[in-house]
């Protein structure tokens, strides 16, 4: 990462800190609506970060945008910002223009569609075309996080060549990034809480049993972050990298959510406390765009059919996390 990229990320983090406050997330959850979060985020210009320079965008790479995707998760952002960034980049070369205020979700077949409750448009796939359609949500926001189980498609704005697989890979990769961002934030919150909360005359973090759990939590968060970084460091979404990242994020999520809530005790589950804003989104992410079983089978199949003598070769050829 260059210094410029770091400045970019810090700027974006600051904006998110101001715009995506926990009061606003709670208001959103009580009655889902794009305003005020969406227009304030859209105003920053970051929506065109991935759009090629020749189409008037910033022309950043996926690797450069990866920290922004993490940051969205770290703030429990309830709107499809990363997904809209990607949609705008995909659409620009095809001359398909979206309304300025379009909030786009990626909608491959999936058990649940995060952000769909407030989406104005969706990318949907059939066979070899990806279509941009206006949508209204089919409701059923079962996690109270702005997701939906189905979408009602309306008018089509255009289409371009692409497969359902491409759409699923992109959706799973962006979801993994936001999940690990949220999990990193949960780790921070849990470490802070363990330092403050006292029982038996000591802060919780002084108890060895708690220390050991937090060590495991940190391991899970860091390795899921490395896996997501690997998936988002290439120029496009590669099936093996995305499979490993989503699988790892999902598996980590089990332990991370359980330990975070265990260390917080009862208060972590309350509406008033922020932790559950993150854990509900992480859990919604676990169900979305392929669970760990789905991606593990894909990854296992890739390993078995790969022309690699050893798994070390497979990791080196397909899952290398290089500085780009």
């Amino acid at each position: 990462m260059s210094d410029d990229d770091n400045i970019l990320t810090e700027t974006f983090r600051r904006v998110l800190g101001d715009v995506v406050t926990s009061e606003r997330i709670r208001a959103f959850e009580d009655s889902p609506a794009l305003a005020p979060i969406w227009p304030e985020l859209a105003e920053t210009g970051f929506l065109d970060a991935l759009v090629g320079e020749e189409y008037g965008g910033a022309g950043l790479s996926l690797a450069q945008v990866f920290p922004l995707v993490l940051a969205l998760g770290e703030h429990a952002t309830p709107v499809p910002f990363a997904e809209t960034m990607l949609a705008r980049a995909w659409l620009a070369p095809h001359g398909i223009s979206l309304p300025d205020d379009a909030a786009v979700v990626l909608a491959p077949r999936s058990a649940i569609l995060p952000f769909a409750e407030v989406a104005t448009h969706a990318l949907v796939a059939d066979r070899d075309m990806i279509r941009v359609v206006e949508v209204t949500s089919g409701s059923n926001d079962v996690f109270r996080a702005g997701g939906a189980l189905t979408l009602n498609p309306g008018r089509e704005l255009g289409a371009f060549a692409g497969t359902p697989g491409d759409l699923l890979l992109a959706a799973a990769a962006l979801t993994s990034g936001q999940m690990v961002g949220a999990m990193a934030r949960m780790l921070d919150m849990t470490l802070n809480y363990a330092g403050e909360r006292q029982q038996f005359g000591r802060s919780l973090g002084k108890f060895q049993a708690i220390q050991q759990q937090l060590a495991v939590m940190a391991e899970q968060v860091i390795s899921a972050q490395v896996a997501a970084r690997t998936a988002l460091r290439s120029t496009h979404f590669e099936p093996i990298r995305v499979a490993a990242a989503k699988c790892r994020a999902n598996e980590a999520a089990r332990l991370v959510c359980n330990i975070a809530h265990a260390v917080h005790g009862a208060i972590g589950a309350t509406a008033e406390f922020d932790l559950q804003l993150f854990s509900r989104r992480v859990k919604q992410g676990q169900v979305a765009f392929g669970s760990e079983r789905y991606w593990a089978v894909e990854l296992g199949r890739a390993r078995v059919t790969a022309d690699c003598q050893t798994t070390a070769d497979f990791l080196r050829l397909h899952l290398m996390d290089e500085d780009v």
């Binding site: 390795s223 699988c247 598996e251 593990a296 089978v297 990854l299 798994t311």
Partner: peptide, 14 residues
């Protein structure tokens, strides 16, 4: 097999 590979991949990178 896939789960094991998904755990190994970030570790090798680390």
């Amino acid at each position: 097999l896939g789960l094991l590979v998904s755990r190994l991949a970030p570790l090798r990178n680390m």
